[in-house]
Amino acid sequence: MIWLAAVILPILFWQQGADTAPELRKSGVTHIAVPPAAAADWKTTGIVAEPLDLASTIKLPAPGVALRMDEASASHVPWVSSNGWRFLRQPTAKFYYDKPSSPALAAAEAFTFGGQAFIRPAADSAESLTKMLDFLKTINFDHAESINDIRFIDDRSALSGELMNLMVRDNLLFQIVHSRAADSKLTVQLGSKEYPTSTGSDANSLVHRIRTNLTDDKRRIRVFGTSVVIVRVTGGVDQPRVHLLNYGAPAHIRIGAFRIRILGRYSKSQFHCFGTPNAQLMDFNAQSDATEFTVPSLNTYAVVDLAR
C-alpha cells in the first residue's frame, strides 16, 4: 500500500473582521478559515472563508529546534521538533497551529506531510506565511504519493508514536500499513521478536535497530552536513520530488551547503527554493546506483524535482 492523500495547501486562520478583506486581498490571500460565527460576514468580500471550529482540530506544537546549549555535548546536535509523524498517523484529521514562531515552516511542514492544517500567525509574521503559501502554489503538487523504505505497523501506542517521531527526525522514510508485505525492504511491527516492547526497549534503541536492519546503503535518501533538515520524498521513482525542511528556521538558522544522496540515477533536476528563486544545485553527480548533489543554502523550505 502506498500512502496517498490529496495534497492541500495549509489555510490561514483569521479572526479579524471582514473589514480586513482588502488587506488580505492585497497580500494575495483568497482563501481563509474563520470562526463559524463570523463566516457569514465574509460572503461578499471576494475571499473564500470556510468556517472552522477549533474544537474539531488537533493543536500542534510549533515546529523548530531546541538548541540545548545548556547541555554538555560534543556533537552540538539540536533536538528537532517535527509534527511529521502526527500528520502521517492521522491523515484525515484537521490540525491547527496557533502562532508558531515560524508560520512559514509550519505551512511547509503540513504541505510536505500532506496534513490538513490551519495556521493562525502572530500579527508580525502573517506576511511570511502568505509568502510561503504563494510559494507552495507555484510548485506543481499533483503527485502526493510518498516513497518509503519502511512499512510500519502502528499499534497506536505511545511508544509507536515516539518511534515514528524519531524516524521522521532521522530521515528514515516510512509509511503506516496494517500488515506485512513480501515486497517491502523492511516491515516493522512492535511486539515482534525483532522489535520487542519489553522493558528496556526504548524508542531510541528500536530506531537504531530499524536503521541497522535497513542498512544505510538501502536508504532511499541520506542527508550530510546538517542535523536540522528533514526530508521527504514524494512522486514516483522515475520523477521523485525531494522536500527539504529547515527546522532551524525559527531559530534564524539559515542552513549553508549540505549534501543529499538519493538512490537511483537521475540526470535532470529542478530546484525550487523558498526565498531564493535563482538558487542552483551544486556538484551534481549521477552515479550508477545513486545521485548526489549539494544544496547551496536553505532558508525554510525547498523542493528538488528529479528525473531520469
Partner: peptide, 10 residues
Amino acid sequence: RRTSLLGYDP
C-alpha cells in the same frame, strides 16, 4: 556558524 559544506570536497 559552521553550517556549510561549501568549503569541502563533496
